[in-house]
Design a protein around this nucleic acid. Structure first.
Lengths: 104, 104
DNA sequence: CCATTACATTCGGATATCCGAATATACAGG
DNA sequence: CCTGTATATTCGGATATCCGAATGTAATGG
């Protein structure tokens, strides 16, 4: 995970939202992200695959659900970047109240 | 300056190098960046224009030289992001000794 | 088995991004 | 003026990125 790779991962609105939301919640399943982001499932899934492939997110499968979380092995500097982005990103992409659902 | 805009600005190797180097040195002229990065002058100039247009860099002209620096008005969170990226970015893009020139 | 739900992947095309080459501008010195 | 240096901009074309639509897969429940 290089600085350049991290920046590229976060240089897309959907991926940035995903990472910030996963960071906030600790762990989220795909269908929750699909509901929250209002993007079609294949789109979300593709972005999740990208974030997983570059080592930003880790996966856990439970029955038919797939849960994504921040990868524990993220280097310190990367975690600091995400922390610095958290507050302004939350302001930039506010979650509409009716989207605060539980899981699917 | 939104988190998304910042990430897009840094999601290119040349621009990331420019920002990190400008941050390290406080102020750099274009020809110094051209020498250091080993990229053609129009390429560097285009990236500088992008970084200037999105508010990351500020400009000062002195005779025939143009000096770029980090924009003073950068929000706190953005400065923190750059600080977190500094160390690993320096490791990712080491400056070759013979490139440590003065100005042109 | 069959249908449904959750998720992933593939394929093509649209769009954005990046770069090389050429050209423009501005200034400094002879 | 004329030349050289420093920088910016424009124009195409190449390449990368993103997305919609369709399809695949795995598990679950009847």
């Amino acid at each position: 995970m290089t600085p350049l790779q991290l920046c590229k991962c976060l240089a897309d609105e959907t991926r940035l939202k995903i990472v910030m939301r996963v960071r906030q919640h600790g762990e989220l399943c795909v269908c929750d992200l699909v509901d929250t982001l209002g993007q079609p499932q294949p789109t979300v899934s593709r972005h999740l695959a990208q974030l997983r492939d570059c080592g930003l997110l880790a996966v856990r499968k439970d029955a038919q659900w797939v849960y994504y979380r921040l990868h524990e092995g993220l280097p310190q500097w990367a975690q600091e970047v995400l922390q610095s982005l958290q507050a302004p990103a939350a302001k930039q992409f506010p979650v509409k109240p009716e989207q605060r659902s539980g899981c699917c």
